[in-house]
Design a protein around this nucleic acid. Structure first.
Lengths: 136, 136
DNA sequence: CTGTATGCAAACATTTTGCATAAGC
DNA sequence: GCTTATGCAAAATGTTTGCATACAG
């Protein structure tokens, strides 16, 4: 299986550029909107195709939002690498860091001969206010 | 917001029953198939509605599969609570346990006044064979 | 009886694909 | 020039919803 050589196109560059300055995960459609608003003319399908291809080569990370969309972020953007604690009722999100993780994931990956393992940890629970509201 | 009182219907019971004996997360459509194969006549929409309602009341846990489907499992089934290490290229999945997690999640939840916090941790990486294949 | 749950089909939202055209190499 | 990438619109996929009917309480 030979490495598919990608062509340098205006669109691909644009997607890569936007992706590179994204701090957070953004939906394919979000990215399409961003590009359009920036003045780049690009088709939605192309955005999808490009993001997919970038994800395959590891240049982008992907996660799934709780409502079922794919969200992308430039690889390496995981600057302060925080995770999310999300209320499954009202959607309130708290960012947090988890120091142990890095090491845990590392050793785990090594044990199973996996490389390049990313960890996007999303915890879903019930926030304080919603917990109150749920007391029947 | 009063607790919506659910009616005991044959369909709801059937879904709950299947869910109760599920060890792993299953897609709504999977569950629909299982029910049909078991001889229960039930509509797909009903399965979706029931699963959603069970998830809202906390009787079922939900996760998103990497390909964008919702997968359900009876709450409390988290018996040996393992996680998944998934190859983002070939899809190979390795189950693993992570002892530290329970405690970490617990303290984190408490710190932010969240309750009922579940942790489904899915790690995506590159398995040994795919890593080799990717050496360009 | 009253009203919620079901089933079906149609509606939806997101993502993928076919195909003709444009553009990289 | 040959071949891959793009754009558009149409198709596919997974899920939700409207509405008439069935059935639980």
């Amino acid at each position: 299986m030979t490495n598919t050589p990608q062509r340098r196109t205006r669109q691909r560059a644009a997607v890569a550029e936007v992706l590179a300055k994204l701090e957070e995960f953004r939906t394919a459609q979000d990215i399409h909107d961003l590009l359009r608003r920036r003045g780049d003319s690009i088709g939605l399908a192309t955005v999808y195709r490009t993001l997919q291809s970038l994800a395959e080569t590891g240049e982008a990370d992907v996660v799934r939002t709780p409502d079922g969309q794919s969200a992308y972020r430039g690889c390496g953007q995981a600057a302060h690498h925080h995770h999310h604690l999300i209320c499954r009722r009202c959607g309130t999100t708290v960012e947090f860091e988890m120091d142990g993780m890095e090491a845990l994931v590392e050793s785990l990956a090594r044990r199973h001969r996996f490389t390049d393992v990313g960890h996007e940890l999303e915890l879903f629970g019930l926030c304080a206010s919603c917990a109150v509201r749920e007391e029947s």
